[in-house]
Design a protein around this nucleic acid. Structure first.
Length: 559
RNA sequence: GCUCCUGUAGUGAAAUGGAUAUCACAACAGUCUUCGGAACUGUCGUUCCAGGUUCGAGUCCUGGCGGGAGCACCA
């Protein structure tokens, strides 16, 4: 519809002899103004040297002729807007289309493939609510990309080698742990190791040495016969630790509704990364400095960062270089998106700048999409200091409060996940969320459960009505609910284009609110125009189901 | 110190350069022997400061003030 209007306005402008002008077709803030509005008259008033209001009047006439009875009303308003109100028949036709299975999806990205990296919890550390944020944003963006027709490959990247691993393993060894029971145990060991690293010079040396040794054993994959007894112990503990961490991550991913096609580890990327970076020294991309290998970011207005430490171990930067090549090798896609917290923008600018010199074709298709931080009222979370809320704790708490109204554990979990995801997806990505467990996770008002509740209630009414949907039973005036429903496909397109899932969240919130008003005001079962109302309710249900699906928010049958 | 991000009701947020700046929470006042009250209706209340660009600025530009993040061997 929007395209039809755009063409009609463009034709009218051509007839008026307007040179090429940018104009918008938009939704007026107030539906009373109409279903669509255009600023075309305002936009071209200056070049024509005429009053915008006058041009608007002429546009109205021309549009009336072109659009005929598909519109109910066209008028010039305000400083020179043209407001368009659709005929109810036009709206009804689109409401009928809202019940199809793929409602809201598009094909403009069909044939395109995108690899998207998110969540990225590190084995040997606990998965906390910060990772939850990345996971929720990443999953929503993945689904929105799928809605545009693209093929999406999901991956997550975890640091299974590096100082944090050495700290955790060091503490586990100190405590004579040979078998690790659960992820919490590793989290505690990591904190213990970190504290020792800060406090004792001796511990620091031991941990640094262990770190290097772990690289040698697992990342460069030394031949088994060259391993000492102690090395084998380290290897076993490391294997077990990674396994326990990953089992916990898998459990959380499953609750959140994410399945990764690829799980990459640091240990897969270090060797490749190191060799690329060392080659880069020869070709002059990187340079030696104080025993380390660095990239001089200053030449591109960025910071200098270390890629290989003076101890010979690779940093995160080198691992990301290695990962870029590894992704290309395992599963080449048209585009590569990496979602991380916003504090890493500097890091990725440098990595991308370096990669551009080494492999421009890889750098070109790679985009870093940052999201804001989830901070606690008590300050920044740090798993090193132990002041974190783990994903597991948060979800368990939420499930507990959702259980008050839902005996069914599955439904309680769906409600809990909806509340958590809504908190994150309600706002534009990039902004921080100050997380207050008491206030942030509402089950009322603007909230995940509010959406679920409206949907469940609509389904219930439809099930109870003995009448089947029939759009020939339409009342004279369209319901506001219908006028919102037909906007859905365009909302999904915008969310994908702008990489802004919160547009969907806002829309479904408005839609659910409108449903609740409709429900309070209009008697559906045994009321006037029941068949038509059932048709609208059915379209509402489908729109909500699809909207929640694209956000990754679960849809309960009952609640 | 340098670089980047940010400043909207009491609180948390929204607003491709458009009309009377939305939404929720909180507070206050109502609806209701419910087609499922996790609901609905109403009241209250907001663009950090000073310039500039524009027919039009919360949005763009300049300067100030406040908050946050990053800045060589962490990820």
């Amino acid at each position: 519809m929007e395209q039809t209007l755009r063409d009609a306005v463009q034709n009218a402008l051509n007839e008026l002899g307007v040179p090429e002008t940018e104009f918008v077709i938009e939704w007026p803030a107030d539906l009373a103004h109409g279903d669509f509005a255009t600023n075309a008259a305002l936009a071209c008033a200056k070049v024509l040297g005429r009053s915008p209001r006058e041009i608007a009047e002429e546009l109205v006439e021309k549009l009336q002729t072109t659009l005929g009875d598909s519109v109910k009303h066209i008028e010039a308003a305000g400083p020179g807007f043209v407001n368009i109100t659709l005929a109810h028949r036009t709206i009804t036709k689109q409401v009928e289309g809202a019940t199809v299975k793929d409602w809201g999806t598009h094909t403009y990205n069909t044939g395109k493939s995108v690899m998207i990296e998110y969540s990225n919890p590190n084995p040997f550390k606990e998965i906390h609510i910060g990772h939850l944020m990345s996971n929720v944003v990443g999953e929503a963006l993945s689904r929105v990309l799928e809605a545009s027709g693209a093929r999406v490959v999901r991956d997550t990247f975890g640091g299974d080698v590096g100082p944090h691993v050495a700290k955790a393993l060091w503490a586990l060894k100190k405590n004579n742990v040979t078998d690790i029971g659960n992820a919490g145990e590793i989290g505690k060991a990591y904190i213990q190791g970190s504290n020792a690293y800060e406090a004792s010079k001796e511990a620091k040396e031991e941990i640094d040495a262990l770190n290097t040794r772990i690289y040698d054993i697992v990342a460069t994959q030394l031949a088994p016969e060259t391993l000492s007894e102690e090395d084998r112990e380290i290897l076993n503990l490391w294997r077990k630790g990674r396994e326990v961490s990953m089992e916990e991550f898998a459990r959380i991913f499953s609750i959140l509704g994410t399945r990764f096609d690829y799980i990459f580890y640091d240990s897969d990327t270090t060797e490749g990364g190191i060799s690329v970076v060392r080659d880069g020294v020869t070709s002059g991309v990187f340079e030696q400095s104080e025993g380390a290998i660095i990239y001089r970011g200053e030449k591109k207005g960025l910071h200098t960062l270390v890629f290989i430490t003076s101890r010979g171990t690779p940093t995160y930067e080198t691992k990301d270089i290695g990962l870029a090549f590894l992704k290309e090798e395992r599963c080449s896609t048209d585009e590569v998106i990496i979602i991380t917290a916003i504090e890493q923008v500097g890091h990725f600018e440098v990595v991308l700048a370096a990669l551009e010199e080494i492999a421009p074709q890889l750098a070109k298709k790679m985009t870093h999409v940052p999201h804001g931080l989830l901070r606690l009222t008590t300050g920044k979370m740090s798993s090193r200091k132990g002041n974190i809320i783990t994903a597991s704790e948060l979800l368990a708490d939420m499930v507990r409060s959702a259980t008050e109204k839902n005996a069914d554990p599955l439904v309680a979990e769906q409600v809990a996940v909806a509340a958590v995801k809504y908190m994150i997806l309600r706002q534009a990505p990039g902004g921080d969320i100050v997380f207050d467990p008491e206030k942030s996770l509402s089950l009322e008002g603007d909230s995940g459960p509010y959406l679920q509740y409206a949907l469940v209630r609509a389904k219930s009414v439809i099930a109870q009505s003995s009448v089947s949907a029939d759009t020939s039973d339409a009342p004279e005036e369209p319901y506001t609910l219908e006028r919102l429903i037909i906007r859905f496909p365009e909302i999904i397109r915008k969310a994908e284009r702008l990489r802004a899932p919160h547009l969907i969240t806002q829309y479904v919130t408005q839609l659910a609110g409108e449903w609740n008003s409709f429900y309070a005001k209009e008697r559906i079962r045994d009321g006037a125009h029941e068949a038509y109302k059932i048709a609208v309710a059915t379209a509402f249900v489908r729109t909500m189901e699809q909207g929640l699906h694209f956000l990754g928010i679960p849809v309960p049958e009952k609640m």
